[in-house]
């Protein structure tokens, strides 16, 4: 059984005629429009809102990096908060212990995340499916208790607060632009990775692990590579949390925090590249305004998650592409048949 992510499916359909450049341009149109919209919004909004937008942008990277494993590798990790935490704590602890400058820490953090992902991935990937999800959850909680209890090193429950970013970054617009630039470059790299032969093999493993294994592919090595790449970019997202909040504290690495990028991917659509980006924006803005207007944000988020996971497992992006498909069919006057909406890989490796 082969399932292609919605974006690819649609792109493939549209690329059938016309030059490759036209297809490439059309495929880039939507992300580009989104990027420009975010940029314009960030440059024109009030400073308080810019900060919120900046946070959503950084979470988008966290969600896409997590989805590299979740949607493309079929590896359900509830432990990506560990690497997010490595990113955030590298910057804040580097500042607190006066061992690293801000820029040094920003560069070092992703590599620390990737380096930590090697042993953790080697352990976690020994397990499969549900055990993998629960073991990564345990790793996240382990990171949490370490961050909480090693008070002398990590600041304990209160975490680290202070002037850890250079003063030019305290201007909301500057920190927004830096965040947007880092996230855009990171997403471009992740896009390249997922559309390389490596990304294709990864999807193959998700859909039919046994067949890929039989073809002589080292499944373990590919999954470990995905784990390490994801750890790298989750750490990048973590450094951006410090740029946003000038702090780091244990709650950003516990298992519910690790669940958040997973939920974003599920909300936005885990079988597309940009689905998690949409999910991150929806989740963060909903969260922000819900907390402001109601005490029952947990209830609302719970109901929304439940509705999506039970009714539309391919998330908002899946719904959108289904609507788009219906619209195109009406335009092209193609007789209605069963919609070719991408289905989640049932029963296959996950």
């Amino acid at each position: 059984m082969t399932t292609l992510p919605a974006a690819d499916l649609l792109a493939a359909g549209r690329d059938a005629g016309g030059s490759p450049w036209a297809g490439r341009l059309r495929r880039a149109a939507l992300p580009l429009a989104f990027f420009v919209a975010v940029l314009v919004l960030g440059l024109t909004m009030a400073p308080a809102n810019v900060l919120e937008l900046q946070y959503a942008v950084s979470l988008a990277l966290f969600a896409v990096a997590t989805n590299l494993m979740l949607g493309f590798g079929g590896l359900v990790s509830f432990g990506q908060g560990v690497f997010y935490g490595v990113g955030a704590y590298t910057v804040s602890l580097g500042w607190m212990h006066q061992s690293l400058s801000f820029s040094e820490a920003m560069i070092l953090a992703p590599f620390l995340g990737a380096a930590l992902a090697v042993p953790l991935g080697m352990i976690a990937l020994r397990t499969r499916r549900l055990y993998f999800a629960l073991l990564t959850l345990a790793l996240s909680q382990l990171a949490y208790v370490i961050a909480e209890n090693q008070t002398n090193f990590t600041g304990g429950t209160n975490g680290v607060f202070g002037a850890m970013v250079p003063s030019w970054l305290l201007v909301p617009r500057n920190s927004f632009l830096l965040t947007l630039a880092i996230v855009t470059v990171s997403l471009a790299i992740l896009w390249k990775v997922l559309h390389s032969p490596f990304g294709l093999v990864l999807r193959g493993i998700r859909d039919n692990r046994e067949r890929v294994e039989a073809l002589g592919v080292n499944v373990y090595a590919h999954e470990l590579a995905a784990f390490v790449i994801s750890g790298f970019f989750c750490a990048v997202a973590g450094t951006l949390f410090v740029v946003y909040s000038q702090s780091s504290y244990p709650e950003i690495v516990d298992w519910t925090a690790s669940g958040i990028p997973v939920f974003m991917a599920v909300i936005g659509g885990m079988y597309t590249f940009f689905g998690p980006v949409v999910g991150a924006f929806v989740y963060e803005f909903a969260n922000h305004y819900l907390i402001e207007y109601t005490q029952d944000w947990q209830l609302v988020i719970g109901v929304v998650l439940l509705a999506i996971v039970l009714l539309r497992p391919d998330g908002l992006a899946g719904s959108l592409s289904a609507i788009g498909e219906r619209w195109r069919r009406r335009r092209d006057r193609v007789p209605a048949g069963p919609p070719p909406a991408p289905l989640p890989p049932e029963g296959g490796a996950s």
Binding site: V262, F263, Q298, V309, S350
Partner: peptide, 25 residues
């Protein structure tokens, strides 16, 4: 969610955790 993917089960039951926590408050 019986018989579904682990992810579906985990997200659905986590949503229940959120909802029950809110009602508990």
């Amino acid at each position: 969610v019986v018989g579904k993917e682990p992810l579906t089960q985990l997200v659905a039951t986590f949503a229940v955790l959120y909802i029950l926590a809110d009602i508990g408050l």
